[in-house]
Design a protein around this nucleic acid. Structure first.
Lengths: 192, 192
DNA sequence: ATTATCTTTGTTAGTATTCACTAACTTGGT
DNA sequence: ACCAAGTTAGTGAATACTAACAAAGATAAT
């Protein structure tokens, strides 16, 4: 789908966003970092917006394995645990992602980008909702709490954890803290 | 502290960020929206950065009442409930805030702004932590869950709720959904 | 096999536009 | 007469993007 040069451009864009903020994501900076001229970029992407779209696609592809964990055959709480830990594992392995994720607000006025980003998020939320509800039907997850609240708790706390990790300069172990958080959530929502 | 004109400038900046994204927050747009010339802005602020700092200060002042709820004399669960609901009430009354709040990533490369924003958040987290821990000591809040996880759940789910509300175009009632979320969190963390 | 052409990917040198900000002047209230 | 708060006109720097050309390898014709 993406040529090697295109992948290099996308990777460089992510690196720049992570290190210097999206304000410094300029065609000039991308070209300089790669070591080619600015117009050469336009041989591979029609516009800067196309590059940003590719960044989201790349992100989406990389995060896919986390959503897959929600589909594997297992009980609900295990699926959720695997989802969370896989999610954090991927981010831990690609720390640049953490800062790009939260730039969703920066994409605010680019309709296409918002849609692309929203679709990505809603997708995993939908699957997660089904998992939570089936868990509630099996008396595996507490039934006196709305599935919506449970989802908000899971996704919200996970995102906050990543934010804190990223903003702290990654001084703590993301996967360990994630495991702790997941254990606590499991304790809270499981139907004894 | 801030003159009327300064308040108008800050308010206009917030409006622009909310409606058009921070990329469109330009001195030109602020001036045009107010109906004065661009250089007139510089009679009231030394630079655009100063305007952004004022935006954060304004935000901080407006959000203060929410943190105050954590200090009022009451039991832990009530304090948390009042904190959450007050927070959402303020945001509901100032919908423009929602989009500015979680744009901390936008301030990424402005050291001063990051610090200002981080201080603001850590402040309420610290107070919340004390409330949760005292609740745990009083056997009011479950003790088998780390206070850190509880805080992440409360703040994380609340932030996600606001994000969803803002991204959905505010189609649902933020305060009602907040009440529901808080009820569910209370059920989860209270020590029966 | 050699030559000719095409395509891909790069280059240098520019474009118009926009940005935050400034210089110099004006006006109206105290 | 002074001063706060406005104006018009303009600055250099940066931005996304383009025009025109160059080189080199693949493809095709002779």
């Amino acid at each position: 789908m993406f040529s090697e040069r295109q992948q290099q451009i996308v990777g460089t864009a992510i690196k720049i966003i992570a290190n210097n903020g999206i304000q410094n994501l300029t065609t000039k900076n991308i070209a300089k970092e790669i070591g080619i001229s600015e117009p050469a970029l336009y041989r591979h992407f029609n516009s800067k917006l196309e590059i940003l779209k590719a960044v989201i696609s790349y992100f989406q592809i990389k995060m896919q394995p986390a959503s897959e964990k929600l589909k594997k055959n297992s009980n609900a709480l295990n699926k959720i645990e695997n989802f969370m830990l896989e999610h954090l594992k991927i981010i831990n392995q690609n720390p640049d992602f953490a800062k790009v994720i939260f730039s969703e607000a920066n994409f605010q006025n680019e309709e296409d980008l918002i849609l692309k980003m929203n679709n990505m998020m809603n997708q995993s939320h939908k699957i997660l909702e089904a998992v939570v509800q089936s868990g509630q039907n099996n008396n595996e997850i507490r039934n006196d709490i709305s599935s919506l609240s449970i989802i908000r708790i899971i996704i919200g706390s996970m995102r906050l954890l990543v934010t804190q990790w990223s903003m702290s300069g990654m001084i703590f172990n993301l996967e360990n803290e994630g495991k702790q958080l997941n254990d606590d959530i499991k304790k809270l929502i499981n139907e004894k």
